Amino acid sequence: MKNDEKSKYTKEQLVNADKYRHSKDLLNALLDADKLYSHDDVEQLIKRFLKGKVKAC
């Protein structure tokens, strides 16, 4: 396992990271300010959100 996969980061750190600059709004909506996340956690959350189904009106 890579070292960066073990590291945990705050919501603020991840939202401001260059790696996620295109997903800043999504991360603000998905991440909890009181939790820590690894890069793997964030990638899984993004992937799960993007694969979600759209509800018909």
Rank of each mutant, 00 (worst) to 15 (best):
M1W: 13
M1V: 14
K2D: 03
N3K: 14
N3I: 08
D4N: 08
D4I: 11
D4A: 01
E5N: 10
K6T: 08
K6G: 05
S7M: 15
S7V: 09
S7I: 06
S7T: 07
K8S: 01
K8R: 10
K8L: 13
Y9C: 02
Y9N: 00
Y9T: 00
T10C: 13
K11P: 10
E12G: 15
Q13T: 08
L14H: 00
L14E: 04
L14I: 11
V15S: 08
V15L: 10
V15R: 07
N16P: 02
A17Q: 15
D18W: 03
D18K: 08
Y20K: 11
R21V: 14
R21K: 08
H22W: 15
H22D: 11
S23C: 13
S23P: 01
S23I: 00
K24I: 07
D25K: 14
D25G: 09
L26I: 07
L27V: 00
L27K: 01
N28F: 01
L30W: 09
L31S: 05
L31E: 04
D32P: 09
D32G: 02
D32I: 02
A33W: 00
D34V: 04
K35D: 08
L36A: 11
L36N: 07
Y37C: 03
Y37W: 08
S38T: 15
S38V: 02
S38C: 09
H39L: 04
V42R: 04
V42F: 00
E43Q: 06
E43W: 06
L45F: 09
I46N: 01
I46F: 08
I46R: 01
K47G: 05
F49V: 05
F49L: 03
L50I: 06
L50D: 02
L50E: 12
L50C: 03
K51I: 11
K53I: 12
K55Y: 14
C57V: 15
C57G: 12
